[in-house]
Simulated scan of single mutants.
Amino acid sequence: MELKESIEQEMKLEQLIESLIVMQGRSNRRLEELLKRVHQIEQYILEAGPQATATQPLDEGYSFIARLEKGKTTPKS
């Protein structure tokens, strides 16, 4: 009886390890995709940076937020 239980536990452990390997592979793939996207965004910023700053100061890009904050009203109950 102990031999059968030992074999079952070994099989369950093997299945668990295989599942963890698959999960780690998926996680690594997502991380690689995320890093690729981050590098794309960094490259876009580097390429667009001088053009954007030459035509529009940084403060003007966020001025609409300040206008919204000034004109904000509280909801009436």
Rank of each mutant, 00 (worst) to 15 (best):
E47S: 04
S19R: 15
L3N: 11
K72H: 09
R29H: 09
R29I: 05
Q43F: 09
T73C: 03
A66T: 06
E10W: 14
I41F: 02
Q43L: 07
M1C: 07
L68W: 02
K76F: 12
K76H: 15
L46R: 07
E2W: 12
I17K: 13
P50E: 01
L35E: 14
P57W: 06
D59I: 10
A54G: 01
P50I: 01
T53M: 10
A54E: 04
G25V: 06
L3Y: 10
T55P: 00
H39Y: 07
Q40W: 08
Q9G: 04
Y44L: 12
Q43W: 09
T53K: 09
L20Y: 13
Q43H: 11
Q51H: 13
L68A: 01
R26C: 04
E14D: 03
I65S: 00
K76G: 04
L31K: 07
G61I: 02
I65H: 02
Q43T: 11
S6V: 06
I65M: 01
A66D: 10
G25F: 11
L16T: 05
Q24C: 03
R30C: 08
L20H: 07
E8F: 12
K72W: 13
Y44P: 00
E14Q: 05
K12L: 14
E5A: 14
K76I: 11
S6H: 09
L3K: 13
L13Q: 13
A66N: 08
I65C: 00
Y44S: 07
K70R: 14
E60P: 00
T74F: 15
R37M: 05
K4C: 02
P75C: 02
L13N: 12
P57F: 06
V38R: 08
K36R: 11
Q56L: 08
E32P: 01
Q24T: 08
E8R: 15
S19C: 04
V22F: 12
E10Q: 14
R26M: 08
M23C: 05
L34V: 09
Q24W: 06
L35G: 02
P75N: 03
R30Y: 09
P57H: 02
A52S: 03
Q9E: 09
A48Q: 12
T73H: 07
K12A: 11
A52D: 03
T74V: 13
F64Y: 08
L68N: 00
L35M: 14
K76D: 05
Q24D: 06
G49F: 05
E5T: 12
L13F: 14
F64I: 01
V38S: 03
L35A: 06
L46V: 05
R37C: 03
S19Y: 10
Q40P: 01
P75F: 15
E32S: 08
A48G: 00
S77G: 07
Q51L: 11
Y44D: 14
I7F: 08
M23Q: 15
L20C: 09
F64S: 04
P57I: 06
T53L: 12
K72D: 00
T53G: 01
R37D: 01
G71C: 08
Q56T: 07
E2K: 12
E18S: 08
H39Q: 13
Q15I: 05
Q9N: 15
R67F: 02
